[in-house]
Amino acid sequence: MQCSVFTMSQLVSSQSMSSWLDVKIDFDQSHLFFPHIIIGLLIMMAVLIMALEGRRFMSRLKLGDVSFSLFQPGADKMRFFGTLILIVVYFWSMDAVGQLFPNMGMGFLLTSIPFILMMSLLYVHKFNRRKLLSIVLNAVIAPLVVWYVLGQWFAITLP
């Protein structure tokens, strides 16, 4: 699979110059032609941006207007990473559970219920009894409805 790694020399070789507008594309190498042009343009743009905006950026950096911190000040990291972790676990477990019950959409149904429940609990502010009730009801009913209507009625393939 030497082709999955690209080399710039192939771009040059594909353009044997007889007239400056002429171009000969070898079909076997044609998959690299356009990507090379786009990469070339991207590099050009990057250089242009650095040349035109670089100085302004540096001076703002010195003034402390910009920072390299990924998160905005006062970011709710608990909710952010909670979301990320829950989603990763959700996607992974959905596939794994789906393998246990082949082609029945169970992977989707059985993991969506706890996922929605946990997400709602993570996101909710000012927790109270009424909210808990709505959260639990939603976590059970929403995936069931989706699984039944889309998975069973419309026979949409679910994990």
Binding site: I87, F108, I116, M119, A139, P143
Partner: peptide, 13 residues
């Protein structure tokens, strides 16, 4: 807190 989990679920579907 109700809407977002549902949106994620529907996006998955």
């Amino acid at each position: 807190h109700i809407l977002y989990p549902i949106i994620i679920m529907m996006c998955v579907v």
